[in-house]
Design a protein around this nucleic acid. Structure first.
Lengths: 236, 236
DNA sequence: GTCTATATCTGGATAGAC
DNA sequence: GTCTATCCAGATATAGAC
């Protein structure tokens, strides 16, 4: 079982949870082996990478529904028939993306090491970890957020449960701090949803952060500090 | 020129800026008169209302791209041919929705009365006003946010400019407070984007607020108070 | 495993009757 | 002003050669 290293940095995060490059595509391949006609990983990995990254590029610019498989075929240089050796259907492709991301989030979230930290450091680990993950898997998050309506009912609900679970994790951390007498916030539930949304902004409002020249660690620090500030302020 | 009344409440807001019911549809009719073949307002208003509200219902559940005009025809009880007497094309319908909302926001945002208030009350007026507006025109906001990618380049840019303008309005208010020695925040730009995003949550995460049982004024108060708290906290 | 060619269908849009 | 009937582009998906 992986766990957070002592040092909090995106490089340490990258080394701990390998969420990109060949290992990622290998995981995609393993997860969807049964839905594909291709059995040889050597051949599959490269094409999977092309299919997924091109889907992100097309879907994130014109929308997944508006993207045709002809577009995807042209962009990937894989024929229409060829595509269908890798995906069962167009909806299947969207479902696969959601599934892979959810699995990755689930892995990282189930990291037990975080729980043993004191409230402030636990909060820090959660926030920085989530920002790093958003940063690394940006297109996946962006896709899942904006194409959620096209997913199946089960997948939509799973995504919502995931978000509620994340909120809960924050609430528990806040509550631990309140119990320890460090924090004094009373609107814990609302504050948790707000922190979650601040984190989501990192992949949703990329255009704005680019415009402002905000860096990853700078933003993570901002989310951490404002949340902490709200936990310590006594409102009215 | 309309302006905010002394009292801050959703009822007062409703009376000041009439953003629903017949006056709204009349405005939609006036704005798009030239694109429609129907000239008689008596007949048009009712059908426009049906077309727009059904579009919201369909698009907000399956997505605008996935919604077919046949779906819309069935839902509105207007034939395919009939629909085309009201809209120039499917894209046209989406464009019209964005245009009407943007016009409405522009009207409310250009309210000069807010500027004369002291920083704290100005902030309060901006936040409560925006929440009330999100509440009243919820389907319009939700549609425009999630279907932004389907809009024309010009409309997307106009929407982004609108959001930047809103951020700027918040920043100016923050800065006024800093200059007056009331606030001590240094990350003004990031805080402004965060307040904007908290406000957007009110229409984006409706499912969650319903689950938590959060009321409109309660949420507005939360946004106001946490923003104020961040403006007064000194983050080391 | 990958391609070309094609079957089949859906959906936007319009013509013309009433 | 509204409807029915229809056109046709473009999309998903598959069959079968290589």
């Amino acid at each position: 079982m992986n766990q957070w290293p002592a040092e909090i940095s995106i490089d340490a995060f990258r080394r701990t949870w390998v969420l990109e490059g060949e290992p990622l595509w290998r995981r995609v391949f393993e997860t969807h082996r049964e839905k594909m006609q291709i059995k040889n990983p050597q051949i599959a990995l490269g094409n999977l990478e092309k299919i997924f990254t091109c889907t992100f590029r097309l879907a994130n610019s014109k929308g997944f529904q508006a993207m045709s498989l002809r577009d995807l075929s042209r962009e990937t240089d894989i024929s229409m028939g060829g595509l269908y050796a890798y995906i069962g259907s167009k909806d299947d492709l969207a479902a696969a993306i959601e599934e892979v991301l959810r699995q990755a989030i689930d892995d990282v979230m189930s990291d037990q090491a975080v729980i043993s930290l004191d409230p402030v450091n636990r909060l820090k680990a959660i926030i920085y970890g989530d920002i790093y993950m958003n940063e690394i898997m940006h297109p996946w998050y962006y896709f899942c957020y904006l194409e959620a309506k096209g997913l199946s009912r089960e997948q939509r609900e799973a995504a919502m449960r995931m978000e509620l679970k994340f909120d809960e994790r924050l609430r528990d951390t806040f509550q631990a701090g309140v119990d320890a007498g460090i924090f004094t916030m009373d609107k814990i539930a609302l504050l948790a949803t707000n922190t979650t949304s601040m984190l989501q902004q990192w992949y949703l409002k990329r255009w704005k952060f680019q415009l402002m020249g905000t860096q990853t660690d700078e933003y993570a620090a901002f989310v951490f500090e404002t949340t902490l500030c709200n936990l310590k302020c006594s409102l009215d």
